[in-house]
Nucleic acid binder design. Structure first.
Lengths: 265, 265
DNA sequence: CGCCGCATTGAGAGGTTTCAACAGACGTGG
DNA sequence: CCACGTCTGTTGAAACCTCTCAATGCGGCG
């Protein structure tokens, strides 16, 4: 039903999707040691330890096909996911029935933290392309935290970082449209850089509509922004392919002195 | 230097500000048992326990005078505060040097969670009136979590709730201005209700300018919104005194079916 | 009394949204 | 293989909303 020829662009380099096809929970070979994301994953410091004891923090892997949701609506969470390949958007339904995008999640990002507390939420993590996640049981995490106190702070930091990300998104909301778009481009570029890819040239996994929703504007306005930035020569965007040509200009626009604007995690 | 005739409106009923003036850390009489907020405080489930052992989770109290900040800028946090009386705004400086309000915190709310993760943030929690906070050391919290595993989830839930609050704020950003203001009024009303006060009639601790910043608009626009809502008769707002006359209308405006809009914590 | 911070109000300018038509890519099915 | 529908993205023009700038009012405090 859904197209699935989408390339797993973010599959950790060195692994082969077709070679190790599914492994949907069951086996215990979910070692983080062999993972190409090892040094880029947000839970790297939690799973890496001398005693192999908690290597099984990752209890399985799941494939999430494009356009489907990682969790069910209103699901009280007993597990978290770490994005292994692909990308996700966090979206929530408003009263009019349309979806609002609250965030994008790339490989190494934890998804599901917000669902720990919620009774009757309507958030959804939707795969923007065919994706894969590593599954962590929340019970395992709390066990680990109990037994290795130094891991507690690591996990709290991850949650706190999520909080800061959300604040940053709120913060962007008050800026003029151009600045929001520039900030978005820089943010996603930064994400790519941290994953070891070029931050100058990359492919967007999300639609114009998703971008518009995320930066609080409309599909049409995003299209016009792309035009404007292309015309200025500061970017070269064709369809979903992005090239950032004048990073300094964008930084100036977004006011991201790295000092003033809350850090975009 | 600062005016201080502001009434401690939110001082827990039954306690007397003048009678027990400062107690700025030192003593150990910070029992939550006697606190009038006991059943309304977000950390109630964490401090309440059979063994008195962790009664000293609260290590002190601090007075924060109006317009001053609870934490220093860029301060890496080794402690958290719970608002005991008064109100705070969370604000961050943008590139132009002006402050953007990201949230308001009332008695029972935890402040400082975002600072756990941050190196070089520029968030500030500023007291909107003379306020008092209970101080918790982060080390004590992690100790507690290590020794009483069931407390772990409680704390994670508090953090997760903060995350959801931030998402909700982002979510509001995409709504039309009137809806954002209606949502703000309902939210602050709900806060009052949960503290045992009327959600129909209350006094705002924040300025028009702060409200404007929070709902991503200007002081002038807030003033016009107040006018419009007053004219419709759905509210009666004079200065900082608020009376919500037609809650259903506001709910309809904000689309808060309590089902669709992410819960406003 | 006068200053200062906060709030109200007005009118014009400007930016965004809306609505709509159109174009291109893609997959399906004939 | 081509036609078609759908999804996505582009573009235009008009309407609307919100901001900006500025003048004015109000109240507390020195």
């Amino acid at each position: 039903m859904k197209s699935s020829d989408q390339i797993d662009k973010f599959r950790p380099a060195g692994t082969d999707a077709t070679q190790n096809p599914t492994t949907v929970s069951g086996g215990h070979n979910f070692s983080c040691e062999g993972c190409a994301l090892k040094n880029k994953c947000s839970i790297r410091n939690i799973t890496s330890n001398k005693t192999q004891q908690f290597e099984n923090l990752i209890t399985g892997r799941r494939r999430i096909v494009r356009n489907s949701s990682a969790f069910r609506k209103n699901e009280r969470l007993d597990k978290l996911y770490v994005v292994r390949s692909g990308q996700f958007k966090l979206s929530a339904e408003d009263c009019a029935g349309s979806q609002r995008v609250l965030g994008f999640y790339l490989p190494g990002d934890v998804i599901g933290l917000n669902a720990i507390a919620v009774d009757g939420h309507n958030y959804q993590f939707i795969a923007l392309e065919n994706s894969e996640v590593c599954e962590m049981s929340l019970a395992n995490i709390t066990n680990l935290m109990g037994q290795e106190p130094e891991k507690q702070m690591l996990f709290l930091r991850i949650m706190s970082e999520s909080l800061n990300s959300a604040f940053t998104h709120s913060f962007l909301a008050a800026m003029p449209l151009e600045q929001r778009f520039a900030a978005f481009l820089l943010w996603i570029g930064g994400k790519h850089a941290r994953l070891g890819y070029s931050d100058q040239s990359f492919r967007l996994a999300m639609s114009r509509s998703d971008i518009g929703s995320y930066i609080h504007t409309t599909l049409a306005s995003v299209s016009r922004l792309v035009n404007k930035f292309n015309a200025k020569g500061v970017v070269a965007i064709q369809g979903r392919m992005v090239e950032l040509r004048d990073r300094n200009y964008l930084v100036g626009l977004a006011c991201r002195d790295e000092e003033f604007l809350p850090r975009v995690v």
